[in-house]
Design a protein around this nucleic acid. Structure first.
Lengths: 195, 195
DNA sequence: CTGAAATGCAACAATATGTACTATAAGTCT
DNA sequence: AGACTTATAGTACATATTGTTGCATTTCAG
């Protein structure tokens, strides 16, 4: 039920969205236009309009392209500290070094008025949350978790803090920060530790 | 050194920015234009251009208008739990019920390419952080804080979680959430509590 | 090889953004 | 109150952005 797989279509869309992604990172969403992509790629403006008849559609396509990060499997072998370090390291890398780190704030802003943008964000959060939940579930199964710890609350904290620090406050996410954050979560979640 | 205080200037600017703020909340930053405000207020387009010669300037002015929240003094009489409830209640109200809650994501997105937007965000964070810091400092002076607790880390957590929950995830900030969040922070920060 | 489909190009239309000029209304100052 | 100054409304105009259309050319699939 997919459309044709004419190589011309594929080539055009790939080239165009690659360029759109670069523009998105370098100059922001407002700079993503048919004309700008045409100039950068050599694809004619009318062809781009045939693929994405409206500017909104083009920008959403660029957002989707930016959101397609490589999936990584969470490790859950334990102990909790190691699993958390691994998953937070991946999150850190995603925010620091993939297009999503630059683009997410723009998608979030767009989400206020655009359903597709909203669902991109929701999916991103759902995926990250599921990974972190797997880590905590495994820790609970191993008996590492203290009973009073609320897993949804932990998940929120694991994800919200790096997000805020990097994308809102514009502060660095480095290994020193990561270690401190993992320490904090472990202190909250495990039974053995209490300073 | 202020310009004139001609009541016409004041009236125009007030009317225009009030309208801009409403448009910003209802339709997003892209809908904030001289034409839209003119239509809504009856102020002529040329007058609006005299006040804000560029579209960017108009939108930043709308952002600033949205960011001007009433200041509230943090209470620091203790105990920590009560002070945190108070300050987080205020933050919750700000995010739930003032324009800033709708507008902040757009300012954050704009901050990537606009210095004035960036500094609005930085000031917002600085002000909130200072309030929360005052609370923790007072708690430490009263001897309520455990020694291992890092105040900057606490501050980050106090602010980042509600921000993320409301503005990114689009989930509600209610009293039930507030109580759980305050519990968590207290568990981390104080010496007496451990499961 | 041939028909179907995608592309490139150019012209055009509509809207958004910004400027210039003039007449009128409203404020200020004595 | 009267004279001077300043802000506003209205119009026309200039330019860039956004989107459409028709046609010749190129590329693909059978």
């Amino acid at each position: 039920m997919t459309d044709t797989d004419d190589p011309r279509l594929i080539a055009t869309r790939t080239l165009a969205l690659d360029a759109a992604l670069k523009i998105l990172q370098e100059q922001g969403v407002l700079a993503v236009t048919h004309a700008a992509i045409s100039e950068r790629t050599g694809i004619s403006r009318s062809t781009l309009y045939r693929h994405w008849p409206k500017l909104e559609a083009l920008r959403i396509a660029a957002f989707i392209r930016a959101a397609s990060a490589p999936a990584y499997a969470p490790r859950t072998n334990g102990p909790l500290r190691a699993d958390l370090s691994w998953i937070l390291g991946n999150l850190m890398t995603a925010l620091n070094e993939t297009p999503w780190g630059q683009v997410a704030p723009q998608v979030i802003a767009a989400a206020a008025t655009d359903d597709q943008a909203r669902s991109l964000i929701n999916n991103w959060i759902k995926d990250r949350s599921a990974d972190v939940e797997a880590v905590f579930d495994a820790a609970r199964a191993r008996g590492e978790l203290c009973e009073t710890a609320s897993v949804p609350q932990m998940i929120e904290m694991v994800i919200a803090v790096p997000y805020f620090r990097k994308l809102v406050a514009g502060m660095p996410l480095d290994h020193e920060w990561l270690d401190r954050h993992v320490d904090l979560i472990c202190r909250l979640a495990t039974k053995t530790d209490h300073g």
